[in-house]
Amino acid sequence: MSGQAKAFRPEPSALTRWLILGIVGLVFLVPIIAMVEFTLRRGLEGGYDFSRWIAVFSGGLTGEYKGILTALGNSVVLAIVTVIVMLVILVPTMILVQLRFPYLRRAIEFLCLLPITIPAIVLVVGLAPVYSVVAKMFGSGVWTLSFAYGIIVLPFAYRAIQANLQAIDVITLSEAARSLGAGWLTVLLRVLLPNLRRGILSASFISVAVVLGEYTIAALLNRVNLQTALVIVSKSDPFVAVIFALLALVFAFLLLLAIGRVGAPRRKRSSTGASS
């Protein structure tokens, strides 16, 4: 029976599948391999060794690479503050709209996906005057950039949280809790947020990945983050820049892999959880 059903599926044959994936995969691996090869080069005399990697990891970061470390610190601060901005502003709003203003859902979706249409390079033209005001109010600390980053992570964060919101029955959950005497704060903190943890977690991870890779806004507002520092370092020491680029790519890859593992909505489990 199952064999018969399989014959009807439009799947490619195993040969076609692995031929396509193999060729594209190999071509896409070339630049990554080239980066690794580049960092292993031993200079003018040729040959390969790990000296540059060892130099970076054995206290090399305190000396001439200190700039990168500072920039990495800035990016980490930005990532954390951006996640906080996202969690404090977006998550309660989405829950509130789901509960009280379902007719506003389309409007919120439109607003959250709008940053896809407005390129960061356009946004930055208008952000420059906004940030001269922000600097007067909050000082010129790097973290203030998180307000702008909160906007560019909006489409990613919205999708992650919305997928989770749709998979649970927010209205029933909150009414059940309310009817058992819970206050709204309890409903939010002890009923809704635990149910939304997958969506929130993947929204946070994806925000971290976006912020760590952000260049446009930081570069044009003259702030230092990991990417702007990498571009500057690449002009004097391209090897170190490539090492850090590789590490950042691997880190982002692992973050997204973790989202795939953690963030996948498991409907079966959440529905039995809601009904029991």
Partner: peptide
């Protein structure tokens, strides 16, 4: 693996892809 690798290259590469192609 395909999803995560696609996500990294499509959305977070930016500057790092430029380095990759200079190295290639």
């Amino acid at each position: 693996v395909v999803d995560s690798a696609s996500g990294v290259l499509a959305q977070f590469g930016g500057v790092m892809l430029a380095f990759a192609f200079v190295a290639t």
